[in-house]
Design a protein around this nucleic acid. Structure first.
Lengths: 116, 116, 116, 116
DNA sequence: GTGGTCTAGACCACC
DNA sequence: GTGGTCTAGACCACA
């Protein structure tokens, strides 16, 4: 049996910023909080916060101005959307359908929950 | 920010048995593997396996015959179903819809993935 | 005036492995030294060695087997070649031509040095 | 493994003046900017700028008139050229050929890049 | 033994 | 102030 691992903290931070960019909290060329601010606010080591930013930069979602900070990339929103959608389709959706099937959860029931 | 911790192992084991009962692998009054067997098979401390059984017994899904083992309860299947459905409806479904909304994921797209 | 920065150590380590893969010292699916071995051999912190590997893994040059080590990827050689060539063409070659021009260094002279 | 350290700043400044003399920006007996001017312009400690001049004076590329300033030597251009060429031939060219060989970079490819 | 994550804290260059 | 790199050392899961 394989046990489920927790998501690394730096990934959860990256996810957090991804989601906030998708929600429009930070728009193109907006400056994100500094590494140190995040470290304090999230009670995390600066290195861990940094790692989240490095990850997002690698993905082309944010960019860096030396000595100033990190900013949402021109294509940040769309890149974040693609990243999250791919993940959603690959992992979340199949798992969701599997559980639905296991619980004999009908699409009708699902639709009613959606309306609420 | 609060970080997501990993699910305790005993809960993952309890989930595993729940799912297998729902799938019909173990039916009413079937005897489940012994704590020791599970501990060996899953490479887990016997106490951890025991804790999973205690949890399932509390939920009325399995019962215990002293010195013999654990068995699926008369209502085990339905109780497991209810437990899982409640959890599904309370947590998984809202989270799923929230993500769908965030990603502008249409029901149509979802249906197509379901067909595949 | 902008001063030239030194290449980060982890990048120099990554370069080192790149070059050795190109030279054929490590071939496809060969296991590279462990993070700890490198740290000791190069008198570097394990984190720094790790960072070099993470970088090479991101580039698709090496891959990882959990608990075993890092290995040269199927396409590792070609990926490393492309990475290095792009860098060479973008940076080294223009700088080289610029210096040649500055020093009035003819192609003929260059060719003679090449023969030696 | 030995890691490459960055070039000392005073050497980078010396290089800068060498290049400008070679480009003809400063000709024989031209007065170079004062140590203080350089220090301000390059945001560098005056001692560092001074060290660059001392180095160039040692090489016979510039000379000093006490209380007036530094000037390009009679043979400054040719000495600078020799210095740079020697360095180019001893270090840059072999390194360049080595990389070319490693990357299987043909002379033909190089020529085409030169034309552009 | 392996890699992966994380903390604590340092030093650096750039703005 | 900002990020970038690096060290030292810890704990974890996996093999």
């Amino acid at each position: 049996m394989e046990f489920v691992e927790k998501q690394p903290i730096y990934m959860q931070i990256a996810d957090y910023f991804c989601e906030n960019i998708l929600e429009g909290k930070w728009k193109t060329h907006d400056r994100l909080p500094s590494v140190r601010e995040i470290a304090v606010a999230m009670e995390v080591n600066p290195n861990t916060a940094m790692r989240a930013f490095t990850y997002l930069q690698d993905k082309g979602i944010i960019y860096n101005k030396r000595g100033i900070g990190y900013f949402v990339d021109e294509d940040g929103h769309s890149k974040a959307l693609k990243l999250k959608r791919d993940d959603f389709i690959e992992k979340d959706v199949p798992a969701f359908f599997k559980t639905m099937k296991l619980l004999k959860f009908s699409c009708k029931e699902l639709e009613e929950l959606n309306k609420e």
